[in-house]
Write a protein that binds this DNA or RNA. Structure first.
Lengths: 158, 158
DNA sequence: TATAAAATATAGCAAAAGCTAACTAATTAC
DNA sequence: GTAATTAGTTAGCTTTTGCTATATTTTATA
C-alpha cells in the first residue's frame, strides 16, 4: 500500500502519538515548522533591534553582531534584507531604526518571548535554562498555546 | 559605551526579561538555537524513518517525501547525507534502514516528541495544534525542561 | 513477457545565512 | 587637526536545503 492512499484509511480511534497522522496533516506539520524557520531569524533581529533601542538608546550593528554571536558582515547583509522588507530604516554607517512595521513586529515578538519565558519560569525551570529554551521555542508556539501559557502564568502568580 | 563592555556591568538585580542579558550569555542563547537548527532536520528525518518502519513495516523515500511535504529529489539528497553520517543504511532503489546510531537517535527523538506532545495536551491544547507545536518545539526544549514536563504529565494524568 | 507506471537517482539552479579579507567611513585620542 | 582605532560595507566563498528536469531502475499490468 502506498502511503498516499493511507489518507483514506479510517481513523484508528487511537488518540495517542502511537499512530502516524494522516499524510496531509503530517506534511502540514513540517511545512509549518519550515515556514517558522524562514521568519524566525528576521523576527529575532527585529526584536533585538527593538530591545537595544529600548534599553540602550540605540541599535548599532556591532552590538547586534556581538549579541547575536555572528560577524559584522553577517549583520550588514541581514540589515539590507530587513531594509528591503520594510522593517528597518537605516543610513550607511549610522545606527538602526525600526519602521512602523518593524516596531509592531518587535512588540509582538517581545510579547511572545515574555510569555514563553515567564511560563517556563512559572513551571519551575531555572532562569538561565528558561532563557535559552524560550529563545528557541518562541517561534514555534501557536496563538492557542500562547493563550494557555498566559493563563497558566496568571494562575500561578504569587 | 560599547556593548562589549556591558558584560562587566553589575547585574541590575532585575530578574524579569526587562533587562538585556549580558552579551556573552545573550550570544550563547542564539548560538544554541542555531546549533539546534543544524541537527533538527536530521533528527526529523531519522525519527520519521523510524516511525515508518515501526508502523508500516518499511520506510520508502516516496513516503518520506509525502509526509515531509518535500520532493523526492530532496529526500534522495538527504538520505545520502544520513548515510554519510552513519545514521542510515541503504542500497539504491531500496527502502531505508537505520543503523544502530540512527535507531538510538530515532528513539531519543520520539521520546522527546512524545513528552512535549503529551505535555501540551495535558496543558489543555487541542490535539491538532499540539501536534504542530510539538513538531517545532521538540528540538528547543532542554533536558531540564523536558524532565519538568514529564513530571507535569504524571501529576496531571487522570 | 513486454510495456507502462511508479519509485529513485542525479545534475544543476537558487536562496539563505554564515564566513574571511580588503576597503571605507566615523570617532577618539593625542 | 591629524593619526589611530573602531565601526560598517562589500565582494566573493561555502554549506544547506529546497526546487525542476531528466535519466534510470523497479514493479505492476495487459
Amino acid at each position: 500500500m502506498n502511503d498516499y492512499e493511507q489518507d483514506n484509511a479510517p481513523p484508528t480511534g487511537d488518540s495517542s502519538r502511537d499512530a502516524l497522522p494522516p499524510v496531509t496533516q503530517h506534511a502540514r506539520q513540517y511545512e509549518t515548522v519550515r515556514n517558522a524557520h524562514e521568519t524566525e531569524l528576521i523576527e529575532d533581529y527585529v526584536e533585538l533591534i527593538g530591545d537595544l533601542i529600548r534599553h540602550r538608546g540605540e541599535a548599532r550593528a556591532t552590538d547586534l553582531a556581538s549579541r547575536m554571536g555572528v560577524r559584522q558582515a553577517t549583520v550588514s547583509k541581514m540589515v539590507r534584507r530587513l531594509n528591503e522588507l520594510g522593517l528597518v530604516k537605516s543610513q550607511p554607517y549610522r545606527s538602526l531604526f525600526l519602521t512602523e512595521a518593524g516596531q509592531s513586529m518587535a512588540e509582538n515578538s517581545r510579547a511572545r518571548h515574555d510569555i514563553v519565558l515567564q511560563f517556563l519560569r512559572a513551571l519551575g525551570v531555572r532562569d538561565s535554562t528558561a532563557r535559552i529554551d524560550a529563545e528557541g521555542m518562541e517561534h514555534h508556539v501557536s496563538d492557542e498555546t500562547l493563550a494557555i501559557m498566559q493563563r497558566f502564568i496568571e494562575e500561578n502568580a504569587k
